[in-house]
Design a protein around this nucleic acid. Structure first.
Lengths: 189, 189
DNA sequence: CTACAGTGAGACGCGAACGTCTCACATGGG
DNA sequence: CCCATGTGAGACGTTCGCGTCTCACTGTAG
């Protein structure tokens, strides 16, 4: 007895390794995942019933990280623009995992998606709506679209960093600046 | 003899059907693709040696449509912002196919990608660079990132429309407005 | 009418990945 | 010391999609 905590640590470690690998190669084999995690395929199967269960676990991890990021970003406090900056900064470490899940979700077509995503969608949409109501954000772009665009930019950003097309240190800046300010040069106030 | 043209028409029709299906379900079987195109699997194999060849053909189609869109958008003429609007409008019909190819490209990791993409990247980057040099666009977002972000927004937009989260008629507007103007409300000039 | 190109339906073997199983080994606790 | 638990290695059968093949049918050109 007393191994429960060790198990959890191991499981989390496997999950991280799987996320890191699948982010780069979404079609990786169970064998490759096991190898990447430094364990055997048998042990991998002892932790996760199958590939499906593994992806579901990764989904749960992604949802948990998103909600944690939302919690630390305090999207209800201060100017909405600042809240968006805090959110992107908080979510940056999870961006690659999110990018993987974002594309993987297209495979779940038909089945209803995990309720966690709609919870997250709602919280982010609420942030954009708050910014609109306070007059910070323009009202001709729907909160749903801004939320979707945020996901898309996070995914593109993570992917571009992974491929070396943009510098990792610019990730947050480029996403927030484009999302909030756009490409047009702003007139000085 | 004399069937060459008919063959080409058929091939194009199959390609369109495959694009429409794979856009929605990227893991569709060759059998499903054939069924979607209204032909048998044997005939599908007569047109495209294998699944790989089919995806390559779709890639060529996507590249051709992108370059055609770039041609009609005349990215070198007029204000850069207007050129971007024209480009997005011209590329909209191909957005779903592009979204599919954009995610599919992650599978080509390792192998060098089709030269067509770098050609397109260069033309779009040049457009953003032109906007920066003319003073229209801000210079703290690199053309490479703006190009990448455009791809991401096109993919997110196509996907959101496909899922019914945003209206299809708003596609171009939402992408161009977000890309150019961002979410922040602009001060009246 | 005859010949033939194109097609659809289906059978067949192949290979990859999966999920399950067994067995031997090691490590830590009683 | 002995036992038990977790692990690694590997074998095994199954499933699934792919690619190839054959064969019968159809429509059209000669």
């Amino acid at each position: 007895m007393g191994y429960a905590c060790l198990m959890a640590v191991d499981r989390d470690h496997v999950l991280r390794a799987a996320a890191a690998l699948l982010t780069r190669k979404s079609t990786a084999t169970m064998d490759e995942v096991a190898k990447a995690a430094g364990i055997s395929r048998a042990t991998l199967h002892r932790h996760f019933a199958g590939r499906d269960a593994l992806v579901r676990a990764l989904e749960s991890l992604g949802i948990a990280e998103c909600e944690a990021a939302l919690d630390t970003a305090r999207p209800g406090e201060g100017p909405a623009a600042e809240a968006v900056r805090r959110l992107v900064r908080a979510i940056e470490p999870s961006a690659a995992l999110l990018a993987f899940l974002y594309t993987e979700n297209q495979l779940f077509e038909g089945e209803q998606q995990n309720a966690g995503w709609t919870r997250i969608d709602d919280r982010i949409s609420a942030l954009f709506r708050r910014g609109q109501e306070s007059g910070e954000f323009r009202i001709d772009l729907t909160p749903a679209w801004l939320t979707e665009a945020l996901y898309g930019l996070l995914a593109s950003g993570a992917w571009a960093v992974l491929e070396g097309r943009v510098a990792a240190k610019d990730f947050t800046f480029m996403i927030t600046e484009l999302l909030l300010g756009g490409a047009l040069r702003r007139e000085e106030p």
